[in-house]
């Protein structure tokens, strides 16, 4: 595949695989953080809003 002879060659990257894959794993984690954390903020705002509505009705 690509410039590599086989899939295991691709994973090994001539001994640099651990560094490359670790870097891409950290990048994935950072991307997931940037997608998930606004979701959590959004959910918190919605539940705060609902709580406030209940308080006002009483």
């Amino acid at each position: 595949m690509g410039v590599f002879e086989s899939f295991s060659d691709f994973m090994a990257m001539d001994g640099h695989g651990i560094y490359v894959w670790l870097s891409y794993a950290v990048a994935t984690a950072v991307i997931v953080f940037n997608i998930v954390s606004p979701r959590l903020l959004r959910n918190r705002l919605i539940s705060e809003h609902k709580r406030r509505l209940r308080r006002e009705q009483r």
Partner: peptide, 17 residues
């Protein structure tokens, strides 16, 4: 970058970072 870019002459595959 990971699959098709050629290997770097001095740094090998680590340059893909």
């Amino acid at each position: 970058g990971l699959v098709f870019a050629p290997v770097e002459r001095l740094q090998g595959n680590s340059y893909r970072i």
